[in-house]
Design a protein around this nucleic acid. Sequence first.
DNA 1: CTGGGGACGGGGCCC
DNA 2: TGGGCCCCGTCCCCA
Length: 564
Amino acid sequence: MEQPNYAKQLLMQLNQQRCKGYLCDVIIMVDNALFRAHKNILAASSSYFKSLVLHDNLINLDTDMVKPSAFRQVLDFIYTGQLPHSYHVNDQDVSALLTAASYLQLSDLAALCRRTLKSSSSNKTPSSTATSLTLYGHLFYPRRPSCAPLRLSDNHHSKDVARSHKQIQNGHQREDLSEEELYFAQYLSLNPSPVVKINNSTEMGLDLSLQLTTKSPTGSTATEEISPSSLQQGSPQSGTHSTSNSTSSDDIPSNSTSAVCNQRPKQGDVQQHPKVATDSQQSTGRKRPRSSSESSLETMDKVQGKSQGVASGELDHGEERVPSELEDQEEIREAELTLENDLENSEKSIQSENEEEPTNGNKNASYIYQPQPGFEPALDDYLYVCIPCKRAFPTSEELNTHVESHTAEELNIKVRDVEERGSIKDEDQDQENPSKESHSMKGETTSDQMLPCHVCSICNKGYMDVALLRQHEKSHWLTRPFPCNICGRLFTQRGTMTRHMRGHLGLKPFACEECGMRFTRHYRLTEHMRVHTGEKPYGCQLCGRKFTQQRNLISHFRMHTLPS
DNA sequence: CTGGGGACGGGGCCC
DNA sequence: TGGGCCCCGTCCCCA
């Protein structure tokens, strides 16, 4: 008893769901293009994907090995088992596809490519050089941060998810660990010389996202299929990828963004760049600078709105409708073309800027808050603003040049004027905060100290290193040259931005051996471990009460000093 | 309901 | 570039 074509129809349904973005639980990032897919399908198609999707919701493929156009074909093949009939490409394209297939350990597709190349070489016809692609796959791009009003439920939801996950973690710790061990063993078997620290079980399979960025030769079965040039370039395991098993897959594009959007403006945000609208500002519909990226992103929304019902929420409430492939295909493709054109134009226009602009090394950053060619933003729309004189500049370089043109005295006067508003509170905190004494940074001195060091002309803090002084001075300029390419938030330091990005990707490399709880920072793990050890190193000098965390001591100390 | 403590997340900043 | 520390906060629990 067998239902004819059952498997084929099932696969067709899955492919339709992929095209709609429905129930997709993994994002594959190839250069600028993001593809959505289903973990199960990927894992079933390739042992390489299997090892990746186990812990990752977002996979970043090595663009040296896989091009976006080739990956479209790869996804098509994975979901259909065939290349479209109209898929007549030149040998170069097939070679690229072969490289990608070999890299991704898709032996069937690689064999198909080899057969195609073979028949092509033995039977050269003019038509074989024609390029005519029929694509089912769609480009997906990160959605721009939602400007929806703050909703408590969002916050609660994310917390609930986190709490549920925590409970699951605690309850199924052994399963988690064995999974990690399995994953790591699998990784080791595929990669005989991994560049990964194996200090203890804590890092097993957890720290890969931080460590596995160095390419290394592979001993996998795919080696034989990789062309010599491919071998020189690296192995599948060299692809950077993220571990994110601490969040649900749906969190990646939506929750992570909403979590950022739900952050309330902090005290420090008073000094925030004027162009970076705080969430409350966004929520109140405050006008934000409009750039081509937004126009592009709107197009993305259009694409996603059509193809990603989940993202737009249309499928969230049992309103799933049967995807009508032909019905939407034209429109989606049209929107995609518009989007691609927008991005292309945008990238061209900012290419020169990016060469100088500090970025996180990801080209995706380019389409965040970037002006479109022909679109001349008003001065008010420029991203980099000199706080003292309120002048705005399109690039951080121009701003920095401008800032240098300020005389030290001028900056001294104006910045102090700006800072004085918050100084009263700071002074209060100095008195209240028991740890404030140690807040005086190790590398900084005051101007009246003996050390001949580099002194900040604005606040008179001294630094042993001129680089440190420059870094410090930037805090006065208040420029935020490092954008998060997922939510667009700007940061003063690259490290802060990358750390922030880890949050989006759900990277929690540091796991507690006792309870399995994971953290984004080692310092947090150290802090957390005191819960298990009972160590309370922070004692209140007034009442003697001890605390595991310094911040709780500070909070407690305020209770003593603040009037009730 | 409120205040205090425990625990945790995120950004700024120095090194 | 990332670690470490500080600070801002938040949420939850409990008395």
